[in-house]
């Protein structure tokens, strides 16, 4: 066949939409990658057999896990039994349990001031206080919000999004937003003075600093827990409620007898997750208060970070010992979670 002249000159290629062009480029790149990797992979497959290819696929991920999780965990233990200032384990003298003894050298565990490493114990006390307040308010607010969002509400998607969006914000942004509102000449103090109050220096008063740390943390993460509870609420069969309505059961009784028991597994998940997160609290509080005033909002993780990286003498051994202690606490909490979720399912 010959190309017959049609009288119409071939036009310049119609401008391909950018998105389509990008997509084509992406596909070519992926195709090239496939061809590049496929040849050696095929060879490998011939050598070791089809089923053992599983190890090949597993390998990269496990290398990462080993290198950045398991090996470090082992080194963490080594660190906690050595002293000196060097980062390299070979140059660190073995000191036995000295680091732990030093860490636990306390007149009374109830009084951080009586401890030799008083900042660590301040951190422990603050973290405990923070975690308790945060846990109670987190569970309360996320439960109420989930219950409200589960009602026959207009614009439910919108309201759900409203409570959820701070979850996506970075801790630095969350802290800066609130720092801006709470500062001396900020919005909140403006509100206080217009209703006739006095300005409050929120970050100079230890009580207020702790209050706002908890508040901001609840503000930022409440949406996450609300979603978990909402999923639980929506899984409760509707006919249970219909039956209760038939019997004209009062609402509070429906809540105690139907909603709460059936929501219990999700509530446990929320409680344990909030506990685990609470114990690890660092970023929001660190940016918001810097641990201050003094050491009023210094948390364990901030203590570890500062001992290892942000102090004059980098005390890696002490930081490692402190993180092993934290790790044991977290491990116990996670075990509690696993046993609970297993018994629930």
């Amino acid at each position: 066949m010959t190309d017959l002249p049609t009288g119409i000159e071939p036009q310049a290629a119609p401008t391909v939409p950018l998105l389509a062009r990008l997509r084509r480029a992406g596909e070519t790149a992926l195709g090239t990658l496939l061809r590049l990797v496929d040849r050696p992979m095929r060879l490998l497959q011939r050598l070791i057999g089809e089923r053992r290819m599983a190890y090949v696929f597993l390998l990269p991920n496990l290398v990462f896990f080993s290198l950045f999780v398991f090996v470090p965990l082992a080194i963490d233990l080594v660190f906690s039994f050595t002293g000196g200032e060097s980062l390299f384990p070979s140059q660190r003298p073995y000191v036995g349990t000295d680091q732990y003894a030093y860490l636990f050298d306390c007149g009374s565990f109830l009084d951080p001031a009586s401890c030799r490493v008083d900042h660590f114990w301040r951190g422990v006390a603050n973290t405990l206080r923070f975690t308790m307040f945060q846990l109670v308010s987190m569970v309360a607010f996320s439960l109420v919000t989930a219950l409200v969002l589960n009602m026959r509400i207009r614009g439910r998607g919108f309201f759900r999004a409203v409570y959820f969006f701070p979850v996506l914000l970075s801790p630095v942004v969350v802290a800066l937003v609130w720092k801006w509102i709470l500062q001396r000449d900020g919005l909140l103090n403006a509100g206080l003075t217009t209703i006739g109050g006095q300005k409050i220096l929120f970050f100079v008063d230890p009580g207020w600093a702790m209050f706002w740390s908890v508040f901001v943390s609840v503000w930022a993460h409440m949406g996450f827990y609300t979603l978990i509870l909402l999923a639980g609420l929506q899984a409760i069969p509707a006919d249970l409620y219909e039956a209760a309505q038939m019997d004209a059961t009062p609402r509070w009784r429906v809540f105690w007898r139907i909603t709460l028991p059936l929501l219990w597994p999700n509530l446990i998940v929320v409680i344990v997750l909030a506990l685990i997160r609470g114990v690890q609290t660092f970023d929001e509080v660190f940016v918001l208060t810097g641990g201050g005033p003094g050491t009023a909002t210094l948390m364990i993780v901030q203590y570890i970070y500062e001992t290892a990286f942000a102090s004059q003498v980098q005390n890696f051994g002490l930081a490692a010992a402190a993180s092993i202690v934290l790790g044991v606490v977290l491990f116990l909490l996670t075990l509690a979670q696993l046993s609970r979720t297993r018994s629930a399912s």
Partner: peptide, 15 residues
């Protein structure tokens, strides 16, 4: 899942 970065900060820094 059970080993968050908060407890292996120092050794990951070493690695």
């Amino acid at each position: 899942l059970m080993i968050p970065i908060t407890i292996i900060l120092v050794p990951v820094y070493l690695v």
